[in-house]
Design a protein around this nucleic acid. Structure first.
Length: 89
DNA sequence: TATATGACGTTGC
DNA sequence: AGCAACGCCATAT
């Protein structure tokens, strides 16, 4: 567990219901702007146990692996989903 | 050390 | 708005 990973977990924990952030945002908050891929890698490996569904791509695109499940979790928190993408607001 | 891959982001068209 | 190419960080072989 590196500091970067701990930061990611902390940032995810800082998120609340209805709040959505992008991988880049999480990476930047974690102290590594541009390490969006590292964030995705982390969620893919340690995503379990953290609100990974509140993380989307910069285009509002949901994860291509669980986009259905992802969309439901967001809608369950009041986030509007359109065509598998977070509604631009 | 180098090559290949991935829950990404930005730039150019 | 959508597609393609390159760049970034970290891991696996």
């Amino acid at each position: 567990m590196t500091e970067f990973e701990e930061r990611i977990a902390t940032v995810l924990d800082e998120l609340g219901p209805g709040d959505v952030v992008t991988y880049g945002e999480v990476a930047a908050e974690a102290g590594q702007p541009g390490a969006a891929r590292a964030v995705g890698r982390y969620l893919r490996d340690h995503g379990s146990g953290h609100p990974w569904w509140r993380v989307v791509t910069v285009s509002g695109r949901l994860v291509p692996h669980n986009e259905d499940e992802h969309a439901r979790r967001l809608r369950a928190e009041g986030v509007q989903i359109v065509d598998g993408r977070v509604r631009p607001g």
